[in-house]
Write a protein that binds this DNA or RNA. Structure first.
Lengths: 225, 225, 225, 225
DNA sequence: CATGAATGAGGCTTCATTCAT
DNA sequence: GATGAATGAAGCCTCATTCAT
């Protein structure tokens, strides 16, 4: 199966880009270095000029690929979530027990991301940091409803829906499967953030992981023993 | 007791402002209208120039009160959280049963905010919307550690700590009281956001409220019947 | 004679100020701290706001004393030059030999300034640094002719004239006494600046002093043995 | 030889500009008109907005070429000094007698600058006025040591060094060749300034020139007959 | 007299974007 | 298709100053 995935290209919502960055060297460099740069200076300070500078290219060239920096963020986050979804699919395809399956999903969602050699120019580890620090900025905007309607968040929604179904599979009586799923994903990002910047606001740290916290939380909610 | 609170002034971290906006008419107008304006156009588009325009005052006058718009957000969010803390203190002071007390706290944190006549120039309802849409932007920055060290988030941390203690009072065996508290506060904001913009990602809406979801979640986690 | 000078007040051109800063505590603090502040941050960055801050007073109070920061510089430099003139008068009054007298003048003009206990709130040493770093900015302006006509530079001109006369007294045949005098004063400031910032452009430094350089230069020019 | 110099381009320190103004029409217009504008209104009042206005271009376009107005001054002054150095090289290359050579150098440094048809868009005459009125502002700053280390004054230093060597060639016993060289260059600018604005402080004017004054001064210092 | 509050104007700079090559 | 040049608009902020107390 790993073999099948070699040189795999994840399909991101094609509205996020003007020209698919995967189709050229420059495009790949734009994606690769935008991840690095956003990590370095934060999304607010990130500009096409600085990115162009970093990849020794003119800012106008980047406009060939992305309309604006917000779309870059949408692209990167979509890429990340589709990649997470892949992890879930691959790693749970052979698990038939719903409880074990959910267990695996929780582990994937809450654990720290490591780099994945299948997608060479993208650092999933850095991308995970961007998700933690910047993801909410992609939807906490005045344009969220329009963009949602245009499908910019469809991958993320599909992911939550998949988790929701896994929850229902475990306990179809549970009243809040969607909320539990969205709370898991968003909450996990937040706990990672807290453990780095506000250690007193979380129990997650060296000894405890978000995986344990959310496993316990969800198992109790679903009343699985 | 309500009587005592009349004309009460909530003490916000004094580092957030250059000059206390509560000490002058202009200051109060700045606070009042910044809430309205941020709601209208979002924090990204919010500028001192536009605010000055709205209050028929010059942009430079606002700089007498706040260093920059980020500090305005820190001020407003601090104000909100200290106000929430007040609600908790007032409404739980006479409750001795830990379980009922936590119940009340969950209700306060998760319910929709209504305006409070005690602080006339501030619309808590609008402020709550700002918290939902913009709060995370106040700490998802590159300067978060410096600002945290300088005490800009102390009120929020005190609030989480208070909830954490209420959780421990209910079940001192529970392993993740801090994470549960922070997940409650942040998660609740997120569920409110989802119910408005991504209804498929949450069960909260017309029939179900975040209060119910989090009550169930926490009660099961703490194994209270 | 020193006794006579106690509590002496140097008369600076009264056009430089709105209200004589020597007549009040605040005025003296303004003068004292403007010297410190200009030294600290340079004249360009110096503003009444920052000065007001330093002396815990409002910027508007400073306007009672000085029209603008340029006038402060004119005041300070005038003060410095009248103080230098005093040094010359006092230290040469009893010297009858023209050559020895000129010698003394050169020494006073070119040597490093030490603090003078007679004027307690003014640090002549710091003031000397201001003269070296900022004096030329007081006349290299578009308004120089108007201000000159209004007498803002009269003290400086009187000083140069005094030196010129001392030169003539030594050698009345010398063709360029005024240029030699102005070159001495301005050049000496420049050599001090160079020795601190551009040591390769001057011989003045640890071993050689501007005094030696200009003594040699002038003595040769005047053909005094 | 003059033929060789046609269309010559003087190499200025490339740190002074972001993009070499000699490489485009706009760049040349920026240089040309900044000289005119600084002369008209003085360096303090000179802004990129006003310059943009003068050349019917936007302020932001000028930022493509220069970081800020201070860098423009550094560029212009560097250009001037490298041009002066050229004059010295060209006009003294065939003079073997050290004394005559120094004589020529003094004449070039101290005389009034005339326009040089080799560099069509730059008015050396106006530039000379800028040097007289504004040059010292380029180094009398708090950043002088950093900028010096970064090489912004290397051309000027090379010029002084060249003069210093010419002085030593005349009299290798003379103790202050660097100071004499720097005094010549800076002093000459100052005498020109005085003759225009403070005629009583200089002998230079209609009858006497700075050339005569400094020739006499230096010849006596070096004891050349 | 001293001060605090308020402000208009403008400086400096960057951004996002378009145009021409 | 990629790039370099150019730009208008706007952001952010400070200055110098006035006004009212």
């Amino acid at each position: 199966m790993q073999e099948l995935l070699k040189n795999l290209q994840l399909k991101v919502n094609d509205k996020t880009y003007v020209k698919d960055p995967e189709t050229s060297e420059l495009g790949k460099r734009i994606v690769e270095h935008s991840i690095v740069l956003i990590n370095e200076i934060g999304f607010e300070a990130f500009t096409f000029k600085k990115l162009g500078n970093k990849i020794s290219s003119n800012e106008s060239s980047i406009y060939r690929y992305f309309e604006n920096k917000h779309k870059v963020l949408l692209y990167l986050t979509s890429w990340y979530w589709v990649w997470v979804e892949y992890q879930i699919v691959i790693q749970t395809v052979s698990i038939s027990d719903p409880s074990k399956k959910l267990n695996k999903i929780i582990a994937i969602i809450t654990s720290k991301t490591e780099n994945d050699s299948n997608f060479s120019h993208i650092s999933e580890k850095l991308l995970n940091r961007i998700i933690i620090n910047e993801y909410s900025k992609s939807f906490l905007t005045k344009e969220v409803d329009i963009e949602n309607k245009e499908g910019y968040f469809s991958i993320y929604k599909r992911l939550i829906s998949r988790i929701e179904k896994a929850i229902i599979a475990v306990n179809k009586e549970y009243a809040y499967p969607a909320s539990l799923a969205s709370n898991l994903v968003e909450g996990s990002l937040h706990q990672h953030f807290l453990s780095e910047h506000f250690p007193t606001l979380t129990d997650c740290g060296n000894a405890v992981t978000p995986t344990e916290f959310y496993s316990d939380l969800i198992y109790n909610a679903l009343k699985i023993k």
